[in-house]
Write a protein that binds this DNA or RNA. Structure first.
Length: 472
RNA sequence: GCGCCCAUCGUCUAGCGGUCUAGGACGUUGCCCUUUCACGGCAAAAACAGGGGUUCGAGUCCCCUUGGGCGCGCCA
């Protein structure tokens, strides 16, 4: 396979949103598949809107998702001198020119073009004027002398052949009047200098691709292969907004999703491999291919993500999951009924309960809530359903069961089960009629892991104590 | 307005001219399992946007319409 270098190039004007995360994932997968590299470039040339906090959030999000990059992150702003140099090189070669048009003139130009049913574009008024025409006191921008006829054709790895008539494109700005580069120039120069071979990005950049190709051509540089992947939409089909998923990846962590689950969900958005739904990281890398990326936008569906997350939780090893939950605790929304600090003894308890807990949780939040009874203090608070279960006859059953359980020779799930089943049989009760009161007394809830597992995990003293609390 | 992109069940998608009475997954509904809740199992409802072509044959190719999206800055 040929040498492959991809890059993820977020602009640090906000968190790493879900669309960006998927773009990063596709770049990462493509690079790994080819045994190549994925580079990271922070596009911080917009000094007004770029923040260090956003950079930190993006790096943190990538790390959490397990998407590592090769080498140091490049900060685009630090390369401004190089960008300027290239603009001047273009100027010297006659492939770019100074433009002295004022913002007011440009506004008029666009308004007029629109009125005539043409795309609003720069009319090239300074394209062929001699330097001697330069008005005094105005700092010029540098514009690219773009081709005015013919067409620009992109062979996109996802979109296929896309063509633009050059007359619909214009002489855009390369270098601003203050000497700083525009995004269009910076991207091309950086991708070239970084040796990027494959540009995989959102299809909101598709039109930019034509303009960037003009820069490559003017410079005589090879154009990297490009792949414009469709955007992710909200559940209503419109642009992703905060209400349906345009959250930072940290928000997904806070909702209790596993990185592996989010990765799996994201990779299946717009990409498929036959009917396969679940992919380990290795499988994903081996199977991923841009040719299978669809061209239509996908809607974000929390229900499916949640289902996948449940799958990942259920199939995770107990040790792994226990530690993941503990490590994630600080990121989850506060729950005063659950300890923020888990010591070694508590961890053991959690681990022991994990087989029963993980079957019942779709998110780490649900996992935590399900585990709450483990650490509850006696006497247990009962929720509405639990106190509904514990009526007089239920408490009577508990009272009769308590001595039988107290005298058990050895305490275990199996031993308690035998005792309880025997009691139910003697009294001609269905197991549920005694299991539910036990559950309510032991966990304070109407739902929990299997009740005999609860006995086992809680241990003799705590179990008997909780039962006794409800008898009085 | 102009340019570009897109269009299969509610959602993610399989399908790359005949094997499609359109397959899988999520969600939904029903049944089973069952100490609760889950899990699991079984079953059901559910789609080729519309219209023209091309072809012996079209979900698959072409055109138009409609509907979405993206772009059109001295933002990125």
């Amino acid at each position: 396979m040929p040498h492959v270098v991809t890059r993820f190039a977020p602009s640090p004007t906000g968190f790493l949103h879900i669309g960006g995360a998927r773009t990063a994932l596709f770049n990462w997968l493509y690079a790994h598949r080819a045994g190549g590299k994925m580079l990271l470039r922070i596009e911080d040339t917009d000094r007004e809107r770029s923040t260090d906090a956003a950079i930190a959030a993006i790096l943190d999000g990538l790390k959490w998702l397990g998407l590592d990059w090769d080498g140091e992150a490049i900060h685009q702003f630090q390369r401004a001198a190089r960008h300027r140099e290239v603009a001047e090189q273009l100027l010297a070669a006659g492939r770019a020119y100074y433009c002295y048009a004022t913002p007011l003139e440009l506004d008029d130009m666009r308004a007029k073009a629109r009125a005539e049913g043409k795309p609003p574009r720069y009319d090239g008024r300074w394209r062929d004027r001699p330097a001697s025409d330069a008005p005094p006191g105005i700092k010029p921008v540098i514009r690219l002398k773009a081709p005015q006829t013919g067409e620009t054709v992109l062979d996109d790895l996802v979109q296929g052949r896309v063509a633009w008539a050059n007359e619909n494109l214009d002489d855009f700005v390369l270098l601003r009047s203050d000497g700083t580069p525009t995004y269009m120039l910076a991207v091309v120069v950086d991708d070239h200098d970084m040796g990027v071979t494959h540009i995989i990005r959102g299809d909101d950049h598709l039109t930019n691709a034509a303009r960037q190709m003009h820069i490559y051509q003017a410079l005589g540089w090879d154009v990297p292969r490009m792949a414009h992947i469709p955007l992710i939409h909200g559940s209503d089909g419109a642009k992703l907004s905060k209400r349906h998923g345009a959250l930072g990846v940290d928000a997904y962590r806070a909702m209790g999703y596993l990185p592996a689950a989010l990765r799996n969900y994201l990779v299946r958005l717009g990409w498929s491999h036959g009917d396969q739904e679940f992919f380990s990281t290795e499988e994903m890398i081996a199977a991923f291919d841009l040719a299978q990326v669809g061209r239509s936008p996908a809607r974000f569906d929390f229900a499916k993500l949640e289902n996948m997350n449940g799958h990942y939780i259920r199939s995770a090893a107990d040790e792994t999951l226990t530690d993941l939950l503990i490590d994630t605790l600080p990121h989850l929304p506060e729950n005063s009924a659950f300890p923020q600090k888990i010591d070694a003894a508590m961890r053991q308890k959690l681990l022991a309960a994990m087989p029963g807990l993980k079957e019942r949780a779709k998110t780490l939040i649900e996992l935590r809530d399900g585990a709450q009874f483990l650490f509850a203090q006696r006497p247990l608070p009962l929720d509405a359903a639990a106190s509904g279960i514990l009526d007089a006859s239920a408490r009577q059953h508990l009272a009769e069961l308590l001595p039988r359980l107290t005298t058990l020779a050895a305490w275990s799930s199996a031993a308690t089960e035998e005792a309880v089943r025997k009691y139910a049989e003697e009294k001609h009760l269905k197991l549920g009629q005694v299991a539910q009161p036990l559950r309510a007394a032991l966990t304070g809830r109407a739902t929990s892991p299997g009740i005999f597992d609860v006995f086992g995990v809680l241990g003799r003293d705590e179990s008997l104590g909780r039962l006794a609390d409800q008898i009085r």
